[in-house]
Write a protein that binds this DNA or RNA. Structure first.
Lengths: 247, 247
DNA sequence: CGTCGTATTGAATGGGTTCAAGTAGCGTGG
DNA sequence: CCACGCTACTTGAACCCATTCAATACGACG
């Protein structure tokens, strides 16, 4: 656990400005938030179902994810999170966690106390609004995943999640030129999209064979954005980005 | 379009108090919100994808639902809404709709202008908090549906949605004694849970045969709450009800 | 260089879909 | 008041997308 420097909060500010407008004052106030920084290894629970946290977790580097466990070892991944995200922001207005939050890769995490966030919201209603919006974009992504799992083919779902993550990463400056890091395993993709890892594997080979993407090691390359987004019926509206990401 | 009486706002107040505590002042201020009441027939779009509404819609009677349309006539229903719900509350902090809102049955709807809601939030931060919470419970329900569609069997999904709607209706005083109105068709259930109407039909017959439920006409009776909730792996935590609904 | 987790491949299985036909319920109009 | 027509519900049978099981290959890391 190390102390925070104000530069650490840059990903959060960048994220908030991708979905809302902040005044200089508000931006600076966000930058002055007290934050405790901690590094966690991969696949480590950060907050658990039923807990009542008194702080929120900001992803500084690496990917995190939220998930639910069901009977017989089944798992549903609810979301992937990248630097700038506050995956458990909902614990500020709500009391109890109804799912788990974990690191997918090794992560640097910043912890912001509910107390300091509440005070910030009180002093700067525009920040409160930006945070509310952030949780609403989160919800919009859930709706989109639900739609995919319920009504899209495996090909469409996987194409869609690639487009989505590319856009999310692009919005915080971590993607460009049709390339981005891809840090999740095929097993994780399956648990996120309601598919088996075996089928994910076959679909990925198919997408590669069709020349739509490359996915090897930790790099995703989208060779044919237009075809991929058509296949996934991807439309950025639901991400509610103020400044549109160029593909 | 008729003018509003303050008693009309009772379902909203009841709903907000099921997930948050309001002071007398705040409660009265909510009751003074100007509202335009309108009646719409069944299966009628209220707000459409890509629109930028300047008001929110409060369900006073009947059921509403949100949905997305996909290629080849596929439809995903994202949520069902009952009296007291504001299904498009997100249009207050966010600008653009990323899905549609429609009446499922004939409905009485109250329309609240963004302007008056914003002023209410400004004067009573506790109301703003309650509304934020409301959108977060909404999101929690999306996660739960996503989990069901992704990782539960058809039986589990259907059992789950019955438990969920019973609890939602109970929280606003529209269910009790293991009975509630059930206003959606089997087709709608299928589009909500990622199933075909044919399969929904078969599963329903199965649940009836097992003595778990009755579903005829517009009435759902849950004969065996304990078995049904076990089948759907239903746990009310995600509804974040302050006062627990008795089954 | 061995080990563990991920990726890959093949074959059998199955939950749920699709297609198709028939039934029941209900509002409407002649 | 009943025929009509619409919609939802029901049933059967064939089919298929994706799962499951099982075995093998790869690759990173100590």
């Amino acid at each position: 656990m190390t102390s925070a420097s104000s530069a650490e909060l840059a990903p959060l500010i960048r994220k908030l400005e991708s979905i809302a407008c902040l005044s200089d004052e508000a931006r600076q106030a966000v930058g002055r938030l007290p934050m405790a920084v901690r590094v966690v290894e991969a696949q480590h629970d950060i907050v658990r179902d039923k807990e009542r946290p008194s702080q929120c977790c900001l992803v500084l580097s690496g990917w995190a994810f939220r998930y639910k466990l069901l009977s017989e070892g089944k798992r549903q991944i609810l979301s992937f999170h990248v630097p700038g995200d506050i995956p458990d922001l909902q614990s500020l207005p709500l009391h109890v966690m109804d799912h788990n939050l974990a690191s997918l890769t090794p992560c640097r995490l910043g912890f912001l106390s509910h107390e300091s966030l509440r005070e910030l919201c009180f002093r700067y209603p525009e920040v409160a609004l930006a945070l509310w919006r952030d949780t609403l974009v989160d919800a919009a992504i859930f709706r989109e995943w639900m739609t995919g799992i319920g009504r899209r083919t495996a090909h469409g779902r996987i194409a869609h999640v690639f487009c989505e993550m590319y856009c999310k990463l692009h919005a915080v400056g971590l993607a460009g030129n049709n390339r981005c890091e891809w840090l999740s395993t095929q097993i994780d993709i399956g648990d996120a999209l309601g598919l088996s890892n075996v089928h994910v594997n076959r679909v990925l080979q198919d997408l590669r064979a069709q020349g739509l993407i490359s996915l090897q090691g930790r790099e995703l390359i989208i060779h044919d954005w237009s075809s991929l987004s058509r296949l996934g019926e991807f439309d950025t509206t639901y991400l509610h980005l103020e400044r549109e990401a160029a593909a």
